[in-house]
Design a protein around this nucleic acid. Structure first.
Lengths: 347, 347
DNA sequence: GTCGACCCAGAGAGCGCTCTCTGGCTGCCG
DNA sequence: CGGCAGCCAGAGAGCGCTCTCTGGGTCGAC
């Protein structure tokens, strides 16, 4: 019987050390760019690395450094029970999430930190998130929570695990987060609609137990009040396209000629609903969205919308987490970003 | 000066063993559910685990088992240089990717395998992907390549690393992949348009150096030929909404009354372009898409489209990779799925 | 010329786990 | 009642790395 070919064992520090004729420690120093190594040793080691095709083993490194070099990106609170024909991927399919993930990746990648993705819906999932960090598989958590009353932020801070949130938690917690100035955004939408000459404006809100959705409503209302409008017709949505259409129906019945939808998905739904009734956007009814997601360009007229600088916010999220990992005593910090109005055709 | 509080060291196997009054080996056996452990020991260990709040350290386990329990999900060939206002996140924002990621996650999660996400554009990125697996950070690669001539599949097979592709590689390679029967899909679209009574149908293709795009064209053409139509007006797109609009313009100039767009994004673009010209869809011109992504519902009329069972395909991808990890000698396999026609309003 | 200070390479321990191997015990057969 | 097989717990090595600690060598100062 023929022998198995010798296992194609990848080379280790030891191998490199042997080839270079130096000690393991020296190779380690060179690999990690530590100072205080004589030049001829550095050269010898680099040559040996090239010859052996050495790649450091991350598990071994992680074992001793207690750093995995990865972070958990958790999307929490997706109620799969009401997920549509596209299944649990629906959250991920949300253009909003795409921008976020992109921003995260481009600020994580250069620092050689890798994101692992996790969806957290059930209590089991929540436990899994905590375990994953506790077992050292990830150094911290970047959490985007699409749900009110999400227990995860609390769970994570209780376990003293490093975490940064996208958007303000629904009750005060000692953790860092990034958010957009939602009230300012709501006010921008109001101003736009008023300046356009709309006489009767309404708002399609998101789920009001989500702080951001609430803030957009408040900002919008206050700005309308400043313009002398005391009452604003309101219809509640769930941030989905269909809910936007439904809410728009209600508002249209009340005779509005301008609508602020609290996100782009609902704005798209609103436009479709208006057009289904034979109305023209923006002449019969103007629509302003929120987010500036890719869906803003997928409808006619294209959406006028309050843009969140999501990529920048995502980068800041990553930055806050990485900073916290460097300095465990860092005090939690909130980073609030200003929205801008992107003018397209819908209002 | 006051002492630091003792480091809140998480408990290890050793600690559990001490508490349970057994050896490390026994604890390990219990934790991993190995058979042949006396019941009273199992109980003692479980009690000790509960008391100590023990969580196994993954790095240590990975070091000896040479299995990381994670896989790399690589999206390759995103040309960031031509990325739009939404930056590199644009790929991720593609609804198509959302469905894929969702499918992957839901079949990986129950097997306790975690996906880490990576974008690969430059040569550096490609090297990074290979390194990541070679350094043991991931056990294999799930690759979705949005680009023709992507070197990554070749690179990965050359390095004998486990990899599964989404969609057939552009030249034969010894690796497993999943794909949809693109020709059958193209034929479905053709049949639909013909049965609707369209007299002059055209096609908006994707980049033809991508095998799938080519196949959709071929299948479409052949089916049209079967119906006695020898010539099909063609306009090339890039799978983006805008390219769909542009291509639709060309086709409309040639007087088509039915169009097959090779993906949903372009179909949406096509509908918008038609409507911009004052045409009604589907009466003046019918449009069939491909994918059945979430964007199919974001336009009016909603898209009639050739649906890919992406979630199923993603699950199969994961399955093929996991199987390969179990059995290194597994022969590469292709899994081809049948598309279905989803009838909505646009054709 | 001698001693101390300093610098840098190597030796070696140990991170937390798995797994093989050893050895004690039980039980059954002769 | 002795011996052998079988079973199961424990001992211990070792996965590949980092990092402290040691010690040899060099140089400057007295």
């Amino acid at each position: 019987m023929q022998d198995q070919p010798p296992a194609p064992r990848v080379s280790t520090l030891e191998d490199v050390a042997l080839v270079a004729g130096v000690s393991r420690a020296s190779v380690s120093r060179v690999v990690n760019g530590k100072p205080g190594v004589a030049e001829h040793i550095v050269d010898a080691v680099n040559a040996a690395i090239a010859r052996t095709g050495y790649v450091p083993n991350r598990a071994a490194r992680a074992l001793v450094t207690r750093r995995s070099g990865t972070v958990l990106v958790v999307v929490s609170g997706t109620d799969t029970s009401r997920s549509g024909p596209w299944g649990p991927g629906e959250v991920l399919a949300d253009p909003f999430f795409g921008r976020l993930a992109g921003g995260l990746m481009s600020s994580l990648a250069p620092r050689d930190v890798h994101p692992v993705l996790m969806l957290a819906v059930t209590d089991d999932d929540h436990a899994r998130v905590v375990s994953y960090v506790r077992e050292g598989s990830a150094d911290g958590v970047l959490l985007v929570s699409a749900q009110a009353g999400d227990p995860l932020p609390q769970l994570l801070t209780d376990a003293a695990l490093p975490v940064v949130l996208f958007s303000r938690p629904d009750h005060p917690l000692a953790l860092s987060y990034v958010d957009v100035n939602n009230r300012a955004g709501g006010a921008m939408a109001a101003r736009r609609l008023v300046e356009r000459g709309c006489r009767s404006v309404g708002i399609i809100t998101g789920p009001l137990d989500i702080p951001g959705a609430e803030d957009r409503l408040v900002g919008f209302r206050e700005a309308m009040a400043d313009h002398g409008v005391a009452f604003v017709p309101t219809a509640a949505g769930t941030f989905s396209v269909e809910s936007g259409s439904a809410a728009m129906g209600e508002l249209l019945d009340q005779g509005v000629d301008g609508v602020f939808a609290s996100n782009d998905n609902m704005a798209v739904g609103a436009i479709l609903a208006a057009q289904d009734r034979g109305l023209t956007v923006p002449d019969d009814v103007a629509v302003v969205g929120f987010d500036d997601s890719t869906s803003a360009l997928m409808c006619r007229p294209a959406l006028t919308t309050v843009r969140q600088p999501i990529e920048t916010m995502a980068a800041e999220m990553a930055g806050l987490l990485l900073e916290r990992l460097e300095d465990p005593d860092m005090r939690p910090r909130a980073a609030i970003f200003d929205p801008t109005l992107v003018e397209r055709g819908s209002a």
